[in-house]
């Protein structure tokens, strides 16, 4: 199956509908009005699209809603998977040595240097991920490939975040831990790690939104998350292309925005009092 081969030539004529749109649009979309105004240049540029097409979008809101859930689930699963691998990888890059450290470093460079779409395709076609059955629910191959691909790539970036923050904790902290009788591992675990994790929040915030946005790229392996469902919708009704894409873009924006604010809150909530000495 070629993801690109299945692309319908859907660059359709939504502009006619656009220019003639005289009635007020249903959803808040003045966002892209400027962009389309540049192209269309009609007097009523702030009305985007046809009301009928907006109704089409709203009628299919539940279809897109399932896509939103998939997007969120994919993001959370990938971030957790990425953390489970990325945190130890970061620790190895700081505290490890020899072959292991270099192996981790090299894998990281490769994962960070390859487009996510290539990673996803490799996971899907090359690794040939099986369907995973949990008895109650099962994960289809595209979902497993998506989590693996996004998660591995995220692990590579998360390892860099943790590498930097672990290294930023003063050496004296480790020494102080050792001096009260903790082993090296315990000192890292109970003294260094708690400080490093707090400092990781800003970098983590960035990573979270990157993964969230990049879930859209599982489009390449046909996983029906938000963007793919949007694509399916506007392929079905080609006059509603702009309405559908603006609608799903707005959803993505709300998701990234709320994620960022939530992590901002987490950052202030768990900040070490009196600021940090860096």
């Amino acid at each position: 199956m070629s993801a690109l081969g299945t692309l319908a030539p859907a660059a359709v004529d939504s502009l006619g509908a656009l220019a003639s749109g005289g009635a007020p649009s249903v959803a808040a979309s003045d966002v892209a009005a400027v962009a389309s105004g540049l192209v269309v240049g009609t007097a009523d540029w702030w009305f985007i699209g046809e009301p009928a097409d907006w109704w089409f979008v709203l009628d299919n809101a539940d279809y897109l809603g399932v896509g939103v859930l998939l997007t969120i689930g994919l993001t959370v699963a990938s971030i957790l998977f990425g953390f489970a691998l990325g945190f130890p990888a970061g620790a190895v890059e700081v505290y490890g040595d020899g072959l292991l450290k270099r192996a981790v470093g090299t894998v990281g460079v490769v994962l960070r240097g390859t487009p996510i779409v290539v990673i996803l395709i490799v996971m899907y076609f090359v690794v040939g991920v099986p369907q995973i059955n949990f008895g109650v629910a099962s994960l289809s191959p595209p979902v497993v490939a998506g989590i693996l691909g996004l998660g591995l790539r995220s692990a590579a970036y998360q390892s860099q975040i943790f590498r930097a923050t672990l290294a930023s904790v003063d050496d004296g902290q480790l020494e102080a831990g050792r001096s009260v009788g903790l082993s090296r591992f315990e000192a890292i675990r109970y003294v260094v790690v708690p400080q490093a994790l707090r400092r990781s929040i800003p970098g983590f915030q960035n990573e979270f939104t990157i993964v969230l946005k990049d879930t859209s790229i599982v489009f390449a392996i046909g996983l029906a998350e938000l963007l793919t469902r949007g694509y399916d919708l506007f392929s079905e009704r080609t006059t509603a292309v702009l309405e559908v894409i603006l609608f799903i873009s707005a959803i993505y924006f709300v998701l990234t925005f709320t994620t960022n604010r939530a992590l901002d809150y987490l950052g202030t909530r768990y900040a070490i009092p009196e600021g940090e000495s860096t």
Partner: peptide, 25 residues
Amino acid sequence: TELLRGTPLLAQLFVLYYGLNLGRY
């Protein structure tokens, strides 16, 4: 910056190509 960093790049490309049909212009 918030708008462009807050939405997926692929969605932005879709807006330009499928939505606004800029390929013709």
